[in-house]
Design a protein around this nucleic acid. Sequence first.
RNA 1: GGGUGUGUAGCUCAGGUGGUUAGAGCGCAACACUGAUAAUGUUGAGGUCCCAGGUUCGAGUCCUGGCAUACCCA
Length: 1116
Amino acid sequence: MSQATTQTRYPTYASLDFPAFETYIRAFWERERIFEQSLERRAHAPAFTFYEGPPSANGQPGIHHVMARTIKDIFCRYQTLKGRLVHRKAGWDTHGLPVELQVEKSLGITKKDIGTTISIADYNAACRRDVLQFKDRWDELTRLMGYWLDLDHPYITFENDYIESVWHLLKRLWDKGLLYQGYTIQPYSPAAGTGLSSHELNLPGCYREVKDTSCTAQFERSDAPGEYFLAWTTTPWTLPANAALAVGASIDYALVDTYNPYTHRRIRVWLAQDRLPAYFSAEAADLDLPAYQAGDKRIPWRIVETKRGEELAGLRYAQLLPYVQPEGDAFRVIVGDFVTTDDGTGIVHIAPTFGADDLRVARQQGIPAITVPAPDGSPMPLVDRQGRFVEQVTDFAGRYVKNYTDDPDYQSVDVDICILLKKENKAFRVEKYEHNYPHCWRTDKPILYYPLDSWFIRTTAYRERMVELNRTIRWKPESTGTGRFGQWLENLVDWNLSRSRYWGVPLPVWMNEDRTESKCIGSVAELRAELERAVGLGLMPENPLQEGRDFDLHRPYVDEWILADSQGQPMRREPDLIDVWFDSGAMPFAQWHYPFENEDIFRRSFPADFIAEGVDQTRGWFFTLHAIAVLLEDSVAFRTVIANGLVLDKHGNKMSKRLGNAVDPFETIQTYGADPTRWYMIENAPPWENLKFNIDSIGEVQRKFFGTLFNTYAFFALYANIDDFVFDDQNTVPYASRPELDRWIVSKLHSLIEAVDGYYSDYDPTRAARAIQEFTIDQLSNWYVRLARRRFWKGEMTPDKQSAYETLYECLLVVAQLMSPIAPFFAEWLYKNLTDGLREAARPHDSALALPSVHLSDWTPVDQSVRDAELEARMELAQNICSLVRSLRKRTRLNIRQPLQRILIPLTAHITRQRLEAVADLIRSEVNIKAIETATGDEGMFVRQVKPNFRTLGPKMGAKMKAAAAAIAALDAAALRKLEAAGRYPLQVEGETYEITREDVEIRTEDVPGWATASEGSLTVALDTTLTDELRAEGLARELVNRIQNLRKDLGFEVTDRIAIEMGFRPEWQNALAQFGVYIQHETLAERLDTVEGLTSDQQIEIEGVTSPIQLHLVR
RNA sequence: GGGUGUGUAGCUCAGGUGGUUAGAGCGCAACACUGAUAAUGUUGAGGUCCCAGGUUCGAGUCCUGGCAUACCCA
């Protein structure tokens, strides 16, 4: 039941049904517009800016989205409590490959159908329709899980306004000279004449075993003729394009004196030491070098020198095949992180035009590519787009590097190049090599890695600044910022912006036919004006953007818009789309349609104070936000970021629909409730760790934490209603005059507020949740309520009872607020239960209680004056003593109901008489002991043991530690007394005297002869187990109270009902009844307690084998 | 192959700056307690702190090198 069972000031409930009360709370929020109110209340407060990373709504949300969104929600709610204005605008990412693939799947088409069987217009219309198909499900999850977000005014990346803002950013990059056309190495099929996506390369069957001619080439050192670097390649056709050699920095290389096997000339060659066995036989190592004759089977060799790769870096060599000269500083040895000694020579041939690693490392180290001018003057590689060598490679001009034309007489270029190298003393070994190589799925021909034109953002120009500004960002966890992100930034390459696709933001660049003029468009107005001019020149029949007309900035429309260059000649748009990641990275600007609208809002909300997404966004959204902000605003885009880990299944495996281990968030929330789900996810592990999601653990959180808190409230409500307790925050019992126990929990409460505030402000929600949970379960419920409950039970309202009520009420109210960022529903439910019945009375005072929602409240300030570390310490001592007494009672089989005469506690530096006296009453009643006695070591009644305190002795003793420890263990009782009395003692260690102090040893009581003893650390408790007749009688009385209370409960009496008791006469019990009858009556609210001979009754009670009939009557 | 995490009880996790008996919860077993409790208390079983070296009087903690696993990038 979530409905209150009675109309009372503090509603009471039979049980706790999470989905039901969450539905009730959600309806309340929506009806009363609490989210909107939480913004309105802070309308003039300083802003705390949060950016929502836009999800793609073309798929169902998963449980990991609940994780990410809980984190976001927590800090937005916390900052609102702290008095900030926190706008949260929803957003949707709508472009990109996943949408395209999904549409192709649902339409049953492939990319090559686009433009033939389906028009680009229809295709894009399908994408637009599909991409938000699950938006309703996402919105539903957002509501169900209690994530507060402005869902009514989202930014959507496919809208014209959004695209216009993106264009404006691109134009600013253009104006700064940061947008340029260049090339990257991409898989390319010469036979098909097209580039292939990585997705196409992963189609089954693309990688095949092939035999190629591999070549280990000799590159001659410029400053040491006769000395060569050996480099191995499976693509000899790339050797004319060689521009550098790469070595591993920490790999060891050997210089070997030997002979070339083809020319038989004496040479010295460099290769990795680990690769020697692959090139030289062990038997030949000792052969006499000068004795070698051409044709000898074994070629002698000898190591003459070794160096590490980093020492070789910078050495120069002569170009291997000098057909084309580069412009720049080529033919150097450089360091590459990809170099291994798994195969080859440990030295890698670098052809920047034909390898992705090659190009990357060449760009980093300033190695030029070997290119020739294309007909249009731009540089092109030594192989053309059909896969043929260009004419400048004279020996092989016009020949296909692989057999792309199915020519039956095809002669391998690789083989011919190797023959040439052999002749010129440039090949050390040539052999067939079998390996996996990707093939084009359309033509079955091997692909080439080939430079293809793309548009780039020159991010490298701002690399240093990006690194520098990154250091000012607070990363959670820090390692993601310094490591994964920071180190990557330091090795940043230019951002390839181009995508050859259909559904996305078109690159707003127009070029004339001979590519001598280009224009970048930065707004609709600018484009409209350009089109107007084109219309005037007769290049366009009419202006598609003229005022009042609907238009779409996507393909294919934008492709049809022709502009004019300075000569009036047509300019066409570059066909590329831009990387979708630019879309989302542009959201700080584009979500407000800046700069065309909302300039003020943008300025106020940039940069963000906080963002949070999965760690997989590090090089995605986190990077694009950062890059755009640094390049255009010289600013970070966010000050704090939480990069959360993955949600795995309970075995630590990745969740996937295919494996069937994915958890449905809707089902989880409907079964367990949003709050237990949220709490579990946050409490279980820090968000930046991967979460092993175990759904059973949510049930545990529900029972343990929420159940305990519910019961604590239920206890309060039960008695507060009976006593008609009204919390009046204008008039409470001063803390100073509250009892010890109350002051203790209030002190703990304010320590908790400070701790939780610190954790939230440090973006560590897990520690916050754990602290709240520990306080609620261990301190508030299991100690405070347990010890204080008798104060609520009996009699009229006294200052003591008033204090108990107020203290418990305050604790519950503050806990509701502290937990509200993580568990917004339960916190609200608790807050409303505590305050709804007081609302009207609070209004005139305009006090905090007048607020209808905990989410509208202001963070409770820590009251340092009520904190008392000494009080907290001695209560902890009391808790430990009680724990030891319970342990002793267990061991001696004397249960708590049996009163015992006394316990004895040896005093120590920390366990003082003063401390014990302050908490003695609590201990006595909690463990049912009549007296607490104390003693010092002087009486000699304890058996004591002394242990060295290594922490303090360590610095003093150093290497003599072991001897000192032995000397201390050997101290006798007299020595200990001397140490305790004087506070210091001269200790003999290996002939030297060291003065040790009390702090340097730990004196523990081992045993108290004649008593039952138990110890924990330096705390020892001894229990007197002597039972007197009086103690027995009192124990029996307590047993009777227990049986009668249980019976009352079984019979369904209310806690306030008064009764009359009749029971049979039992001689064993008479003494107890005579002495403690009044006590029994008092405890059981009995007006009368009579023994009746020969009583018969359905009810029986039993104590230690003695049974008796009993009857309880309700007294009116 | 590179980068970054993680590795502690059957499970989920704590264990500032090194200190000698490594903790909690869950689960399991037993016994208690309960007029708020769906709880709780006590006791017990359960650990090569991933491995190997090193530094140190002393390493779960620091260093080096591995192994396993996850993510990102090649």
